[in-house]
Design a protein around this nucleic acid. Sequence first.
DNA 1: TAGCAAAATACAACCGATTGCAAAAATCAC
DNA 2: GTGATTTTTGCAATCGGTTGTATTTTGCTA
Lengths: 330, 330
Amino acid sequence: MSGLAKLSGVDISTVSRALNDSPLVNGKTKDHILKLAHETGYAINARARNLRKQSSQTLGIVIPVYPGSQQNLSDPFFLEMIAAVSQAAAKFDYDLIINLPNSPSEIAERRLLLSGKADGLIVIGQAGRIERLRSLGDAADRVVVWGGMIEAADYTLVGSDNFEGGRLVGEHLKNIGRHRVVFLGDIDLPEVELRYNGLMSVWKGDGADASVMHVRSSFDGHEAYRQMLALCEGAESFDAVFAASDVLAIAAIHALQSKGLRVPEDVAVVGYDNIGQAAMISPGLTTIDQNIKLGGEILVNTLVDKIAGNPVRATLTPTKLVIRGSTVGG
Amino acid sequence: MSGLAKLSGVDISTVSRALNDSPLVNGKTKDHILKLAHETGYAINARARNLRKQSSQTLGIVIPVYPGSQQNLSDPFFLEMIAAVSQAAAKFDYDLIINLPNSPSEIAERRLLLSGKADGLIVIGQAGRIERLRSLGDAADRVVVWGGMIEAADYTLVGSDNFEGGRLVGEHLKNIGRHRVVFLGDIDLPEVELRYNGLMSVWKGDGADASVMHVRSSFDGHEAYRQMLALCEGAESFDAVFAASDVLAIAAIHALQSKGLRVPEDVAVVGYDNIGQAAMISPGLTTIDQNIKLGGEILVNTLVDKIAGNPVRATLTPTKLVIRGSTVGG
DNA sequence: TAGCAAAATACAACCGATTGCAAAAATCAC
DNA sequence: GTGATTTTTGCAATCGGTTGTATTTTGCTA
């Protein structure tokens, strides 16, 4: 910038104002400086600017994937979420730092926020992170969490309507006459519990000729596969599986088919997330679409609002049932 | 930091040295300052430090996903790559900025590098980015590209051995007696062309009782699905499909099965990447494992070397065939 | 053309760390 | 106890922008 100042014969303050399109500089001067900047390939030094402006125009996204977090990094859901957040952030000229702590002891949240590397933080999933968030103090005002709506949360939550998602699945299964449902997932996770509750709500006070069985599994496909194999070898009978994610559902279908069970004739299978592969496997997977793209936008909008100091409330994104061959084909 | 200086009664230069564990400060002084820093929850201001040290301890990863780039953002391959790079970068205390330009005109490379937001850049895939990389001037010394090895590249390339991958697939297909192979992908992409050439090399000068047919498709599963349906409706007959990615392979299986063809009995299918889902669909997908985790580590190691000013050469990561039911089951 | 308001530019402080060098304090040898 | 050395600490410049305020220039009116 001092180089540009010399070249154009004005003070660097004028150069700065010109590059920032300030109305304080004369039109011709501005044009001249911008031309020089373009010719010399000048780029404003973000490090100096960040220091002076007390902002880094960067958001962070934290995706805890260590074993205890119950989240599974290879789940395409995360990629869609990253993409949605990245593109939403770009609209505000924010860059995105991605952080994948692989042990619970990593304190990425503190480091990124308090050092000023990120102006705000998006945390995907709340399992095991709640205490951590509480320890952030003031900086917690610049954090938004993606997760199921729970009462206990004293941080800003954005998430899809997990209860409604579960309810839609329950209704669909009821409509196609399936009554003995296996719920595959870990209801200790708030999001999953809500989906389970939604599912159960369909049969509440309803002659009770339906049974829902909880088969616990993390979001790891291999674990779900083993659990389903074990289930098939047991005595329990069932005619539907509702999995807490598409990855689990795909694993479940694999297990069922390897046991000679037909999907959907013998067992209907429903997933959650509507990842790209859901439409591409055979049979196509009936699933819940959380509208991740919209979710990412709301996460970013909410966070930007918080950074600006505006009060924000928790937000639910709409949820939609996508019916494919795994429940009504055959 | 000036706060800590006041609290501890020393100059901020001493505080700075203490926090950076410099041997210049007295042990007791250091302990005292560190204790105070811990108690007050002090974190070094990264913005100031970055400016002074002329470094941001941040790498960038650019994944072009606009239509012309031929890459498909929903491909789990990218998530595995992001994870591998992120975790490798963490070992060097680098953070990772992720950038997903969704139009070719976005000049993320220039912006991130020249502004100093990132110390170095990893670019995934070279399609359409070559000229862009050339325009970076000196900053190109801080860029590493993931892609197929091509002669024309005058930038640092890291990639798996795509030719060998294709060759392994060819050999496998030959071993199981498949001679009429459909290659599904777009050989205008360097990586894909190499896989194709590797495949072809198996039958070179070999009585020529084999035929390989190129069916062009981008990395979008839906496009591959349509292409395969069209192919099935045509007159050509074939007994194997080698797809340029697992996503394409899964789409191909879906298309084949919907046309009543059995996999692998009628058509053997091989993918590329060994994404998580490859083991979870029915039948399991035979595929090439590129060892993305290792690839990500090499990318980061190479980039860190380049940033330090060390000369580096292009690197190939090993490639491995993973055989599953889509070729030898049934 | 003088006088005044408005527009344009320059000056200088500041953001919060790091670091070379000078100064002070502590340690040591004799 | 004095002088030389080594440790430890402080001073002040620096990184490269942004921005409040002062100053100069321009344009306008009478």
